[in-house]
Design a protein around this nucleic acid. Structure first.
Lengths: 144, 144
DNA sequence: GTAGGTGCAAAAGCTTTGCATTTCC
DNA sequence: GGAAATGCAAAGCTTTTGCACCTAC
């Protein structure tokens, strides 16, 4: 079984919750795909493992996975919520092409450092951050 | 009349659209309040100027104001959409307390510069960016 | 006069919730 | 055995859309 499964199980145990078959299938479906997955993508993938899974279970389970540190909210704009893997995936930010939707993930130590300084400056305790850069990718800029 | 009114009118003219009384009232209602306004906040404020205004008009007008560069989407998480002033309000980012909801606006030239370097590194043409830092403000951290 | 705008109400999406039934510990 | 979880369907919210009537240019 995967390390993620163990992490999830332990998280549930600590909370007095149960590891169930639907939860396991949603986790496996989520882990089986990289990138930004909508809740519907996850529902479809989960049903390949168990056709009886309901969408409410996907919503409820993804919320738990987020709390357990296995998933991270990757929603953009006001469309459907999206999740990405969070376990042992180093933190990164996103560069998004507004025309073709292409997403580049990057990590910039300089920016991370500057963000920490902002937290310190205003006396805030950091819990997380979200940065998204929007632009045209080289291909789309060329077509213009 | 305000400079924003002129900007909006000019934007509409260029697009072959009309300046109307409801649009003017939504603009005035929006300009009359600082901070992050939900579409419902704007509806309520607009109705103080003209009780007959419908919410569809607020949605439609705010979309126009955004395109005209007068409003900027300031939505957080997946809740209702929020807008903030954009005209001659220099760009800034947000530091948000996850407990009390307090919002601090800041501007960090170092981060802005680093972001431009990211765009250049991946060959993207910049169109905008969104950064939000989440944490506990000093008051909430003390209460723990 | 006419293209465009408005308010209303209905529809459309996404997410949450109530509940009878089932499942895990 | 009993608390917790599930699937379904209904409800909730926010946002969009269709349409008959109105208005700015």
């Amino acid at each position: 079984m995967t390390a993620e499964y163990e992490v999830f199980k332990e998280y549930l145990r600590q909370k007095g919750l149960k590891m169930t078959s639907p939860r396991e299938n949603v986790l496996r479906a989520f882990l089986g795909h990289e990138g930004h997955l909508s809740t519907d993508d996850i529902l479809v993938a989960s049903r390949k493992l168990d056709p009886a899974i309901g969408q409410a279970t996907v919503f409820r389970t993804m919320k738990l996975l987020e709390e357990a540190g296995l998933a991270r909210d990757a929603s953009q704009d006001n469309g459907p919520r999206k999740y990405e893997h969070a376990y042992k995936h180093s933190h990164h930010d996103h560069l998004l092409c507004i025309r073709c939707g292409r997403v580049v993930e990057f990590y910039d130590p300089q920016i991370e450092k500057a963000q920490k300084q902002i937290f310190a400056k205003y006396g805030f305790t950091e819990t997380g951050h979200w940065m998204e850069l929007h632009g045209l990718c080289p291909d789309c800029a060329r077509q213009k």
